[in-house]
């Protein structure tokens, strides 16, 4: 009887430190993710000059692309500056899957049904989805799997209605500023397909932003580096700016 009591005690002692840990972590994972969402969606609007460098499977750099991208909430507009063959191409992305492309050579705006969320953005390794605004806590259920000196590592599993095209993400979140520094993307077959690494994270006008992003397609061994050359926040872009009419200007 005495032994039984001892075993019970030992068992309780063993379980005890773990139990609160689980609940705390669950809460923390969600909290962390909400903090990430808040951080990423904090600016009213942003205007960014982007340089894209594509690197093929042999490590060779392809022709660079440059564009100006403006974003306000879920609305986005971009205009290509280079290469020469794509200069002037513009795109406008509005909520409810409305996507327009302006083709200067045709002098025409065309609506595109982006059925495929994982479709590639201008030949880069970023999909339209990857470039869009992220509300992680709405689309993913999270679990804290690791926590080291610098980062929390969250495992995100798609919730019902998630249509990002990915089944699972691994998210590395910086402990001090809650900026997601690394994301691993898993496709519908649960195979690691892409890795996004953010570096040179800076605080500009009170907002955090990574000046350098690298997306590696691990299946095709192709990668894209994105440099945010010029960043402006809260410039007061009006909603009128994000219209078809403005796109063709």
């Amino acid at each position: 009887m005495k032994n039984l009591f001892l075993i019970l005690l030992l068992t309780l002692l063993l379980i005890f430190p773990v139990l609160p840990g689980i609940t705390a972590e669950q809460l923390t994972a969600k909290a962390i993710l909400e903090k990430v969402d808040t951080l990423l969606n904090a600016p009213q609007d942003q205007k960014i000059h982007i340089k894209l460098v594509l690197i093929d499977k042999n490590g060779k750099e392809e022709e660079n692309r440059e564009l100006i991208m403006m974003q306000k909430g879920e609305k986005r507009m971009g205009k290509f500056l280079s290469p020469a063959s794509q200069r002037g191409i513009g795109f406008l992305s509005l909520p409810n899957d409305l996507f327009y492309v302006y083709m200067p050579a045709f002098k025409k705006t065309q609506r595109i049904a982006t059925r495929q969320k994982s479709g590639k953005f201008a030949g880069t390794d970023f999909s339209y989805q990857d470039l869009g605004t992220q509300q992680y806590s709405e689309e993913w259920s999270s679990q804290l799997v690791e926590s080291d000196q610098e980062n929390y590592v969250l495992q995100l599993t798609a919730v019902e209605g998630n249509n990002t095209g990915y089944s699972q993400l691994m998210l590395w979140v910086n402990k001090t500023n809650f900026f997601p520094v690394k994301v691993e993307f898993y496709n519908q077959n649960n195979r690691l397909c892409k890795i996004l690494t953010s570096s040179n994270v800076q605080e500009i006008s009170g907002y955090f932003i990574a000046r350098e992003l690298e997306m590696v397609d691990v299946i095709k061994n192709h990668s894209t580096k994105m440099f945010l050359e010029k960043v402006e926040f809260d410039t007061g872009l009006s909603d009128e700016f994000f219209t078809e009419r403005y796109l063709s200007r």
Partner: peptide
């Protein structure tokens, strides 16, 4: 409008 995507996309 143009639809560009997978022909029979059962996932999306």
């Amino acid at each position: 409008f143009i639809e560009i995507g997978t022909l029979i996309d059962l996932e999306d």
